[in-house]
Design a protein around this nucleic acid. Sequence first.
DNA 1: CATATGACACTAT
DNA 2: AATAGTGCCATAT
Length: 104
Amino acid sequence: MKKDITIFQKKVYNAASLIPKGKVSTYALLAAVIARPGAARAVGNALNKNPYAPKVPCHRVVKSDGCIGGFASGSKNKREILKTEGVLVNKNKIVDFENKLYKF
DNA sequence: CATATGACACTAT
DNA sequence: AATAGTGCCATAT
């Protein structure tokens, strides 16, 4: 017990919390920066367990295509949150995705 | 150590 | 453009 957290997840949460409001990032991009390219799935796994729910804006992490993807609280609710942050979403797709994409 | 799972990505059809 | 199949990595059991 005591924070069943791995180095990998620590990096993921850290990077995710660095994403500014109104911006979004992708699993693949995060993976490529914090650990290793291709670990997009692993990043999603880490965020899914996300023990720092309000601390880590996991909702700012989306798919490389700009799709919302899946979320623990429900992708439907996720769109609403992003909208509040200033990121408009159209049918699970980020509006101006490339423009709102935050690169590390 | 091997198998199964998952908030993904890419290529082929 | 949409769908399906395959590959990749980390975690859980």
